[in-house]
Every structure is written in structure tokens, then in C-alpha cells.
């Protein structure tokens, strides 16, 4: 099947756009893979199915984002090439999404923090000046709204649950909170995208993100950690955590061992 119909605007910053599209696609790819690690082992059948379905949505979105990235790059690479043959330092995902699953509570907390951002980002990208970006966002946001509702619901259920579940959710929040700041920090790529009218500045999402996340966390009787320290280095590829490389050895094994294998 061929790519999507809408055409690119006449002029745009191609190198920066490629970076931005890799950021979007690598977030969904890495989180999609992480969530798929629960397939068959989640604590309840319904949650197993829900987690696998969410992973599937994210992988589908990856095909669109990385497909457009490959098209933008124009170097003859495909979405699969980008996903399966780049090494860790070429990935542009947030540090948050590459963090290991931990227990189911930590997995949910990671999704909750990301989903709230993802929904806001996609809502704004539906208004992108690049119609191809807007089309992908319009498709993805319907799925992600569902993800965000579910992860928020479960964070409240488990946070405001038993002593055991509350403790685990608080520990998950304490551990993951320092990874949230990277989602809301601007860099040169973000500024180029904003100037070209392609994407919002991440900092413009900070207020609505904080508001929605804090409202849910209060309902979940969880305490937001103090301090504004934020780990950086995922979305610019400068300093991924060691976890990404380990994940890629599993995810990319087949294409590394049997280059070009298809089915």
C-alpha cells in the first residue's frame, strides 16, 4: 500500500522535521514495545488484553510517524529500516518511555504520565501546518484519548486502593516523576517546528499537562514529589539510559540476525 494522500507544504525544514517525526515515532515504538512485554503475563486477563491492544495502537502509529520520517528523509529507508536497524544513539524517544516496566503499577504510572502529554500533543498536532502531520495526529488522537482515560482511571483505582496498591503507586510516581520534565522542555528542534507552524512548543503543553495530571493524582491520593529536577537526553539522543540498548537487542534481534527477513 502506498503512503498517505496529503502533500507536504512547499517549503519546510526537512532535517528538523525528520528529527521531530522520529521523536513522535520512537516514543510510540518504544512504549509500544514495552507494553507488549506484558502480553500473556499481565495480572488480570482483561488488563493483559487492554495492554496488548494499547501496544498495538502505538505500533500502528509508529508505522505512520516513521513512514513519514522515512519519506521526509528521502534516503530510501523505510519505517521498518528506521525501527529495526538504528542503534540506541539514533533513537529520539523520551527517557520516560524506555524505562523498564517494573511492576504493573509502575507500568501504569509511566503510561499515565506519557498518555496525558501524548493526548495534548496530538490534539495540537491536528492543527499542524503540515497536512500529513495533521492527518496522522487526527487518526492517533482518537486512540490515545482512550489510552489516557484508561491509565488515569487505573491510577486512581490503585492509588486510592489498598495500602499495598497505594504504596506501589506512590513509589512508581516518586521514581518516574523526574522523567516527566523532558516532555515539556523545548530545544532547537522544537523551536524550528514551532516556527514552521508544524508543532507546538512542548513548554506550551506544560500548564494543561500539570493541571490534568495533578487533578488525577489528587483523586488517586498520591503526593507529587517536590523538586524540578528532570533527566534529559532521550529526545535528542544524547544520553539514553542503559535500558534502551537492552530493549533493542530483543526488539531488533530478528532483523539483525536475518537482515531483510520478511513474512
Amino acid at each position: 500500500m502506498s503512503a498517505t494522500d496529503p502533500r507536504p507544504p512547499a517549503s519546510q525544514p526537512a532535517a528538523e522535521l525528520f528529527e521531530f517525526l522520529c521523536r513522535m515515532g520512537d516514543n510510540t515504538l518504544v512504549l509500544g514495545h514495552r507494553l507488549s512485554e506484558w502480553c500473556g503475563t499481565a495480572p488480570a486477563l482483561e488488563e493483559d488484553i487492554a495492554t496488548a491492544n494499547t501496544a498495538l495502537d502505538l505500533i500502528g502509529q509508529t508505522q505512520m510517524w516513521l513512514g513519514l520520517a522515512a519519506e521526509t528523509e528521502g534516503a530510501g529507508r523505510s519505517a521498518d529500516d528506521l525501527a529495526m536497524t538504528r542503534d540506541a544513539w539514533d533513537f529520539r524517544n523520551l527517557l520516560l518511555v524506555e524505562q523498564p516496566n517494573g511492576d504493573f503499577g509502575r507500568t501504569l504510572m509511566r503510561s499515565f504520565l506519557f498518555d496525558a502529554w501524548h493526548r495534548l500533543m496530538l490534539e495540537r498536532l491536528t492543527l499542524s501546518g503540515d497536512p500529513r502531520v495533521a492527518a496522522i495526529a487526527a487518526k492517533a488522537v482518537k486512540e490515545v484519548a482512550y489510552h489516557a482515560d484508561r491509565s488515569a482511571e487505573l491510577v486512581v483505582a490503585l492509588g486510592d486502593g489498598t495500602e499495598e496498591s497505594h504504596g506501589r503507586m506512590q513509589a512508581a510516581l516518586d521514581r518516574l516523576w523526574p522523567y516527566a520534565g523532558e516532555m515539556l522542555a523545548d530545544d532547537a528542534i522544537d523551536r524550528a517546528m514551532a516556527e514552521a507552524g508544524i508543532a507546538p512548543l512542548p513548554s506550551a503543553l506544560a500548564d494543561p499537562w500539570e493541571e490534568s495530571v495533578r487533578t488525577t493524582l489528587t483523586r488517586a491520593t498520591l503526593t507529587v514529589p517536590e523538586g524540578a529536577f528532570a533527566h534529559r537526553g532521550g529526545k535528542d539522543g544524547a544520553r539514553h539510559s542503559e535500558h534502551l540498548g537492552h530493549m533493542l537487542t530483543t526488539m531488533q534481534w530478528l532483523q539483525r540476525a536475518y537482515p531483510g527477513a520478511r513474512w
Binding site: 500500500m1 502506498s2 498517505t4 494522500d5 496529503p6 492527518a135 487526527a138 487518526k139 482518537k142
Partner: peptide, 10 residues
């Protein structure tokens, strides 16, 4: 046949 995928409108 030529079969294409169209995501817009979703």
C-alpha cells in the same frame, strides 16, 4: 488493482 491506504479523514 492499486490498493492504497488513506488515513484522512480518520
Amino acid at each position: 488493482p492499486t490498493v492504497t491506504s488513506r488515513i484522512d479523514p480518520p
